[in-house]
């Protein structure tokens, strides 16, 4: 008997694809957002920071439920999408990506924000006096100095997306190859009393999570030595 069935492998592959997509998009989106949060003098900073941090405390089912209402055929976003001739997002892979991005947002933005803030204004002032414009400063100074933070954000964002359950349950459902991710598959196995199969998949997640945390703690001391 194979350790993993075809359906298990499909769920594993789907989960990795989801996590990679979400992490990539979140890094692209989170970078400017974190930069803005670290540097803006705006009064809205605290409000935006609180909204970004919301998924940390909000039960995933609540987030998923609101997204289902919003994105569904009756919701504001859903109707707008239908009006533009697009399919609605719930119970699709793309819907899962959108939901997971919101759910994992703080796990990517927070480390980036901390990293940008810890650089301080001085290296950027030096760079501007040496003739570097704003975008140049970001690419040649801020980003390299924030690299440990980017690594942390990547690991956390990826791991957190892999492990989600509540949001998937509400907005993704359990469609094989579409929205049936690893955590759903484990749930199915347990429901069906297939403990050995659940065991194997759970072990995969456990090992992956541990590896992620280990990688992060290995990255940290290097950051201090660089300071």
């Amino acid at each position: 008997m194979a350790l993993l069935s075809g359906q298990d492998l499909q769920a594993l592959w789907l989960t990795l694809r989801l996590a990679a997509t979400v992490t990539t998009l979140l890094l692209l989106l989170g970078m400017p957002l974190a930069w803005w949060l670290a540097h803006t003098p705006s009064r809205w900073r605290r409000v935006v920071a609180a909204v970004v941090a919301l998924p940390l405390v909000l039960p995933p089912t609540v987030l998923g439920f609101y997204l289902l209402l919003l994105l569904g055929p009756q919701g504001a976003v859903g109707q707008a999408m239908q009006a533009m001739g697009l399919a609605t997002l719930p119970f699709t892979f793309r819907g899962l990506v959108v939901a997971s991005m919101l759910y994992s947002l703080p796990f990517v933005v927070q480390p980036l924000h901390d990293a940008f803030e810890s650089i301080g204004p001085r290296p950027l002032e030096v760079a501007s006096c040496l003739g570097a414009g704003p975008f140049d400063r970001f690419c040649s100074v801020a980003l390299p100095l924030a690299l440990p933070g980017v690594a942390t954000a990547t690991v956390l964002g990826f791991a957190h997306t892999v492990g989600e359950f509540g949001v998937v349950l509400m907005i993704g459902g359990n469609i094989p190859g579409q929205t049936r991710v690893l955590s759903m598959r484990i749930y199915d196995h347990v429901q069906a009393g297939e403990y050995p199969q659940a065991q194997v998949l759970s072990l995969c997640l456990l090992v992956a999570s541990f590896a992620a945390l280990l990688a992060m703690s290995l990255l940290r001391p290097r950051r201090h030595a660089r300071g």
Binding site: P123, V126, C129, V141, R226
Partner: peptide, 11 residues
């Protein structure tokens, strides 16, 4: 501009 602390790029 030469600052009080040397402020070299650490990377």
């Amino acid at each position: 501009y030469v600052f009080q602390e040397p402020s070299l790029f650490a990377h």
